[in-house]
């Protein structure tokens, strides 16, 4: 994955012919950006207590967001500056100008969480994947050598399982938004992020191991290798059950 608009990369999407086509081709970036802008920038800015300058910066952030795809093909530096630096900077300036007014927004915490998700998708949208059918080794700048062959083709179920693991890893992050107290909520968010990182890290290793050709020890040996944590797990459940009975 490379950064869209970064000079020197050859993995940009095809050049857009007109503004409508540019917006349509960058819909995966613009739509999450608009959603994130509406939920986290526009809604707090339209409150009666919001200063006028915050409304101006919020509007300019929207202009930068929509204008970025129009320039990203012909003027990638300008498109990137508008889409990343201007949009994020003006959104940040809006939040700074709102000050305590930002915290007085009585909107649903779920809306704020979804807005954060929108910003995440917007950030991911500024990356670009290799186009289908494009062979990286065909690039004239590639270092000549024997092409690297994949060790094995992953099973078809791997993307589904990995998606399930990612979805499960994100659940604590959403639950953390339900914590009302400030300090406790901050701790819950830290725990949620840490657990998500751990779960996705281990999950990716587990899933990728499914597609590798390698000789594993006998299943009994594999179970024996996990005996210590499994025993500690059983012990913890036993102590928990005992605590439930005793209290």
């Amino acid at each position: 994955m490379s950064e869209l608009g970064a000079v020197g990369t050859d993995s940009r999407l095809p050049f857009a012919r007109n503004p409508v086509q540019a917006l349509r081709e960058r819909a995966n970036t613009v739509l999450p950006g608009i959603y994130a802008w509406v939920t986290t920038v526009a809604l707090p800015s339209v409150q009666h207590t919001a200063p006028a300058l915050s409304r101006v910066t919020a509007f300019l952030a929207l202009v930068a967001l929509v204008a970025a795809p129009l320039f990203v093909s012909e003027l990638p530096r300008l498109g990137r500056a508008l889409g990343v630096y201007a949009f994020i900077g003006l959104s940040l300036l809006t939040w700074v100008r709102l000050g305590p007014g930002l915290l007085q927004n009585h909107g649903d915490p779920l809306l704020s969480a979804l807005g954060a998700l929108g910003f995440m998708l917007y950030a991911l949208g500024w990356g670009s994947l290799r186009r289908r059918g494009q062979v990286p080794e065909d690039n004239p700048n590639v270092i000549v050598g024997a092409p690297l062959q994949p060790r094995a083709r992953p099973p078809a179920i791997v993307p589904l399982v990995f998606g399930l693991i990612i979805a499960g890893a994100l659940v604590p992050s959403f639950l953390a938004f339900r914590v009302v107290e400030t300090e406790r909520g901050l701790f819950a968010h830290a725990i949620a992020i840490l657990s998500a990182i751990l779960t996705i890290t281990v999950g990716s290793r587990v899933v990728l191991a499914l597609g590798q050709r390698r000789v594993l020890p006998a299943p009994g040996d594999r179970l024996n290798a996990a005996a210590v944590p499994l025993a500690l797990l059983a012990l913890s459940f036993g102590l928990g059950f005992l605590w439930l009975v005793v209290r």
Binding site: V161, L164, I165, G168, A169, V171, P172, L175, A176, R178, V179, V180, R184, G185, F187, A188, I191, A192, S195, L198, T199, V202, G203, V206, V207, A209, L210, P219, R222, L223
Partner: peptide
């Protein structure tokens, strides 16, 4: 065993979710 390892990862995510919910 492979399926068990996947279930363990999903179980860990479930346990973390219960932990964060209990924290709240």
């Amino acid at each position: 065993i492979d399926a068990l390892s996947i279930l363990l990862v999903l179980g860990a995510a479930f346990a973390f979710s219960l932990g964060v919910a209990a924290l709240g």
